[in-house]
Amino acid sequence: MLKTVSVAALCLSVALPALAEDKKQNVMVGASGTPGAVSQMELAQQLYAVGVANADALTVLTAAKLAAGVELKDTDRKKETKGDAPAEDAEGGAEAPVDAAAMLAKAKELAGEDETLVGLVEDAEAEGSRGRIGGASSTLSRLPAGMTDVWEIPFYGESYAEIGVLGDGDSNLDVLVTDENGNTICYDVSWSDKVYCDFTPAWNGYFYVTVQNTGSVRNSYYLMTN
């Protein structure tokens, strides 16, 4: 989980926008909420990556069940893409983050001839999406290497907010979340394309999510909010 920070504490060696904190920050310090569908989907993606890396069918199955438990609503959002387009847009190996169906298929592959594990996967396939939790909106963006998306997202004041950036695994994504006054709410420059940010705005306002592809190939990622 990302921490709320002040700009004074922000020292980045990447080309994310420089900000000036000269107005009140739109966040309720000390406020908390219950992580929901966005957090669950982000956890599913993280678990899936760990499971695949360790060839662990049970971990991949757990990720698949978490992903299947989230109902996503496709949403149009305001976005500006910046940067010089590469001469050749090198495509990555994936067109979108892994979904529950693909996770289940991978779990079955890793289960091999283990009848118990295969049975668990088949049970999960039969269960499908029953009992899914809603409340998550997603938008797919195919971001070329070296370019940056800036999203404008509205949130209600005094209501818990979740933002997730879930990449396809092809390249690194750096993420910065600011309020309408330019104050930093969350940031992540780790070598990852899966980022989660939660906070509670103090008033109704717009927030800006900057996603920068620092890799050498396109990354097809979901921007998710509650």
Rank of each mutant, 00 (worst) to 15 (best):
T4N: 09
V5E: 12
S13W: 09
A18M: 14
E21M: 01
K24G: 10
K24I: 12
Q25Y: 06
N26E: 04
M28R: 11
T34C: 02
V38I: 13
S39H: 04
S39D: 03
M41R: 12
E42V: 00
Q45A: 10
V52I: 11
V52F: 04
N54C: 12
A55F: 06
D56I: 08
L58K: 11
T62G: 05
A64C: 13
A68N: 08
G69S: 15
V70K: 05
K73G: 03
D74Y: 06
K79C: 13
E80F: 11
A85V: 13
E88H: 14
A90D: 03
E95M: 11
P97N: 14
A102V: 00
M103C: 02
A105K: 01
E109S: 07
A111L: 13
G112P: 15
T116I: 15
V118M: 03
G119E: 12
D123P: 06
A126G: 13
E127R: 15
G128Y: 12
G128T: 13
S129Y: 12
R130E: 09
R132D: 01
G135N: 11
S141K: 05
G146I: 09
G146Y: 11
T148W: 05
D149T: 07
V150T: 08
I153S: 00
I153D: 00
Y160T: 00
Y160A: 01
A161Q: 02
I163E: 01
L173M: 08
T178A: 05
N183C: 04
C186F: 11
Y187F: 14
K194E: 12
K194C: 07
T200D: 04
W203G: 00
G205W: 00
Y206A: 10
Q212I: 06
T214N: 15
G215R: 04
S216D: 09
Y222R: 11
